[in-house]
Amino acid sequence: MNAFRAVAVAMLLLGMQGGGVPAVAAPANAVDKPVRIDIRNFAFAPATLTVPAGTRVVWTNRDDEPHLITSAGKQFDASRALDTGDTYAVTFAKPGTYAYYCSIHPMMVGTIIVQ
């Protein structure tokens, strides 16, 4: 899905530039590009994210309150406390559904669906 989008954007840019290059090589591995989740107003955005296997997901805390990323089923390592602007990254190698939450504000929940 992301590979499609990357190619489409690249083609659009080339078209706008009016370049005559017939084709541009897609990135060797589209999932190298990390996918971002913002933490804002005590919520994960997007709350549900679907990505291909191998995607690196990066959370960024945009709140003034610290938050943590904790797997609901201990499927991946928990983050340390993320202060404002701090990030945490996890690469999801295996397909599956990964529920997570903030262990100090547990009403904050999110899901990563890895295909």
Partner: peptide, 10 residues
């Protein structure tokens, strides 16, 4: 009441 908090809970 701040330990072992469950996802989606209080």
């Amino acid at each position: 009441n701040v330990l072992n908090l469950q996802a989606g809970g209080l």
